[in-house]
Computed example of a mutant assay.
Amino acid sequence: MLQLASRAWFVRQVGRPGLLGRVEVRGVHMLAGGGGFWWAFGVGWGMGSLIFRKDVRREGVSDGELRAGRRRGELARVHRGVYVERAELEGLDVGARHVLAVRAAVSGLGGDVAVSHQSAAIVLGLPVWNMELGRVHVTACQRGRARKANHLHVHSSPFDETELTIVDGMRVLSPARTVADLARALPFEEAVVVGDAAMRDYRLTTEDLLTALDHWPRRPGAAKARRVIAFMDARSESSGESRSRVRMHWAGLPKPELQHVVTDAATNFLARVDFALPELGIIGEFDGRAKYDRLLRPHTTPARAVYEEKLREDAIRAQNLQVLRWTWPDLDPFHPTATRWRHAINRAAHLT
């Protein structure tokens, strides 16, 4: 551990509104150790502690000591003037690292700025499939503030207090505003993935998203965003299901019913499936790892979960239903899976 003198802010997580969770400051301390004071400063989020140059400079730590810490591999810079212990950084996934970068970036920005776009999505706990995360994205309310640097993208766009939410002390654009911004900016598939999740996790309606979109009607990309929002659906339960819907749409397949309930002849519940063409007796299931994680009840082994899923599928097939399954690699390219759907549709048509 880097031996530097400073304060230590200990933080306890007390909630989880998004990816981060609310925090509570527990105290300010000096930790003695070795030949001086052990470094233990930062804002802890269960994912690393930020070290601010301006704070350690007040404690007498020189820029040379910070540079030496980086050379020795003890410190890593996450933003200009903000560092983290490299050992902590290496234990974080891409999303958690981005959150650290967000906290570092907003600490040096003015009060008229809010976390936005994909950075807001991560802070709000939403999926950011295939999005660029090399820069922190914020929006400045004042005109003329837009700029793009190596690690920061400042958008210039108006927002008001009704479009803000506070997450762990940070001003973040609301889920509805975030989806509207991303629907304007992202390709169709990426926007659908984050929009489906926001509708599901934050109980947003299509009307909520359109209201957010129309709040500033003169902003560019509104027509594109309106088309994307119309396609979003809260019933998609994962990014894989959202992407599957998009790929089926692009392939020209019939629009499936989502979260369809399968019953037996006596109307006893058998299963709820991801996709269905009930009139043709075709069931579609996207098999992502998250699905099997959900099947893992306490004291249930992975092998047992897979076995129970097989029994579930056997019960579905016993109702004379065709069952199609696919996984993440089958989404791109999707045409082999689309061909399987078309063959199933043709078989069903010949049986009727």
Score class of each variant (00 low, 15 high):
Ala104Ile: 02
Val154Cys: 06
His117Gly: 13
Gly95Ile: 00
Gly134Thr: 12
Ala114Arg: 10
Ser157Tyr: 05
Gly110Lys: 11
Leu92Ser: 06
Gly144His: 04
Gln118Arg: 15
Leu126Ala: 11
Val138Met: 05
Val136Ala: 14
Pro127Val: 12
Leu124Met: 14
Gln142Leu: 09
Arg147Leu: 01
Thr139Leu: 05
Cys141His: 11
Val128Tyr: 09
Gly134Ile: 02
Gln118Pro: 09
Asp93Arg: 07
Asp112Met: 03
Gly91Trp: 02
Val115Trp: 04
Ser119Arg: 14
Ser119Asn: 14
Val115Met: 04
Ala149Asn: 13
Pro127Thr: 13
His98Ser: 02
His155Cys: 08
Gly95His: 08
Gly95Glu: 05
Met131Arg: 11
Asn130Phe: 10
Gly110Phe: 05
Ala149Phe: 09
Ala105Ser: 11
Ala121Ser: 15
Asp93Ser: 08
Ala96Gly: 08
Gly95Gln: 06
Val123His: 04
Ala114Gln: 04
Gly91Met: 09
Pro158Phe: 01
His117Lys: 11
Gly95Met: 04
Glu132Gln: 13
Ser119Asp: 13
His98Trp: 00
Pro127Met: 10
Trp129Thr: 09
Ser156Cys: 02
Asn150Ala: 12
Ala96Phe: 03
His155Ala: 07
Val99Gly: 11
Pro158Ser: 08
His137Ser: 13
Ala105Trp: 02
Ala149Gly: 15
Val128Thr: 15
His117Asp: 06
Arg135Asn: 10
Gly144Glu: 01
Val106Leu: 04
Arg147Val: 00
Leu100Asn: 12
Arg97Trp: 01
Leu152Asp: 01
Asn150Phe: 05
Cys141Asp: 07
His155Leu: 05
Gln142Ala: 15
Val138Glu: 03
Ser156Lys: 06
Val128Lys: 09
Gly125Pro: 12
Gly95Lys: 08
Ala105Cys: 08
Ala105Glu: 01
Arg147Ser: 05
Val123Trp: 04
Val136Leu: 12
Ala140Trp: 08
Ala96Arg: 12
Arg135Val: 01
Ala121Pro: 08
Val138Phe: 00
Leu152Gly: 04
Ser157Ile: 04
Asn130Glu: 15
His151Thr: 15
Arg103Gly: 12
Ser157Trp: 05
Val102Tyr: 03
Thr139Met: 03
His155Phe: 01
Ser107Ala: 15
Val106Asp: 03
Arg135Cys: 03
Val136Arg: 13
Asn150Ile: 08
Gln118Cys: 14
